[in-house]
Design a protein around this nucleic acid. Structure first.
Lengths: 209, 209
DNA sequence: TAAATAATTAACCATATGGTTAAACTATGC
DNA sequence: GCATAGTTTAACCATATGGTTAATTATTTA
């Protein structure tokens, strides 16, 4: 029952450590020494497993970009959900994801703005196919009786409403909740139903034009 | 007609250069040499005018934080605007601001996440008074027949919808617009009316519950 | 078990970077 | 014209940082 190989364990220790450090500090702010310390290993070992900081970073980034992207296909294609339920599911799952990974939004936004070409570079590997996604949105637009343009705005609005509360946490918490973490967390929990309600009301409200 | 003093000019040249570099690259990514080059001066001169990178950065950040914060008081307190018009004004002005300063949202979000305490530290100097702001929102909530909780969500939702399209530009442009800058810009312009409409529909839609 | 291979470390290296110094240059006041 | 204070520069410094090397210690394999 002796552990045969430590290497595999070391690799995942490195990945865990790198993830924690990179997500909080970004590529520019992270130090290889810091990651080594966090993983409890020698700095040279980092370069033994991942040749360079860049390589290690991209390994982490690819994975986190995949997490970041909402997996719309299963929800939107479901036949036994009303449009309203699809929206509720989406919002709830997406906000829950960020409650579990609160630093993910700020991390991804920071890195794609540092180097925008990284998006095109990794979008495929992150399991996103823009064309298929746009087709999907087109179908959903029809279902909701929206133009594709309106659908794109709707999508961006929903995603914004889910992501910004996390990416803007320091500001929101300070300005709206007097730096009270508990109040801010309560706000996040309410938000799952609030955003869905808000969107659904808006779609209904169009009828009142 | 000879220029009497160059000094003042030098200082503003430095500030302009620092602003450009810091906003695009952040504190961690920016290099003092780069800022000096951008300003067309010697690196030592940077330290002559602003003792350290940190000091120079904070000078820029303070100013940009002030820009970033929506100036709600004049709009929300106006007596001759309907709530609907207040929302329309706010959204249009806020999005227009970011069309002029497209890197501002990503910059502020990056830096407040790098060092959250910077918000509390500079919120006063940026001309924001959280208490007064919350009072203002309370009044507006009454005007709209909303609870304070709903008002906070509404506020965050509107701000999210304005900011995220800029902070998330690399992703949105790539995924939704196949990397076409023109399409993305058109989207931003539509967005001014779309977001306002969306919010107003939602408030009306509540009646259809 | 001995050779071969993989994992790990301490010490090192080259370069980049924020920051300093001392000297030179410029304008201004007397 | 000269002294003084303010401005600008080239050269320099200490340190941090990503990365490498060579030796050491497991682990595998024949």
């Amino acid at each position: 029952m002796k552990p045969k190989k430590i290497e595999k364990d070391t690799e995942s220790r490195i990945l865990d450590a790198a993830k924690r450090i990179f997500i909080r500090k970004g590529l520019d702010g992270a130090r290889m020494q810091e990651i080594a310390d966090e993983a409890g290993i020698n700095k040279a070992l980092l370069h033994y497993y991942f040749r360079s900081k860049e390589k290690l970073f991209l390994t982490i980034f690819r994975e986190e970009l995949r997490n970041f992207f909402p997996r719309l296909f299963p929800v939107l294609l479901s036949k036994d959900l009303t449009p309203e339920m699809k929206i509720r599911h989406f919002v709830e799952n997406y906000i829950d994801l960020f409650i579990k990974e609160p630093f993910l939004p700020a991390f991804v936004l920071r890195e794609v703005n540092r180097n925008p070409s990284i998006v095109a570079q990794f979008i495929g590997e992150a399991g996103i196919e823009p064309e298929k996604l746009r087709n999907l949105l087109d179908v959903f637009a029809t279902e909701l009786n929206l133009t594709m343009n309106e659908m794109l705005h709707l999508m961006v609005t929903i995603v914004s409403a889910c992501i910004f509360p996390f990416a803007g946490k320091p500001i929101i918490k300070q300005v709206l909740f007097d730096d009270n973490e508990g109040d801010y967390q309560k706000f996040l929990n309410h938000r799952k139903t609030y955003v869905a309600d808000f969107v659904i009301h808006s779609l209904k409200g169009r009828l009142l034009k």
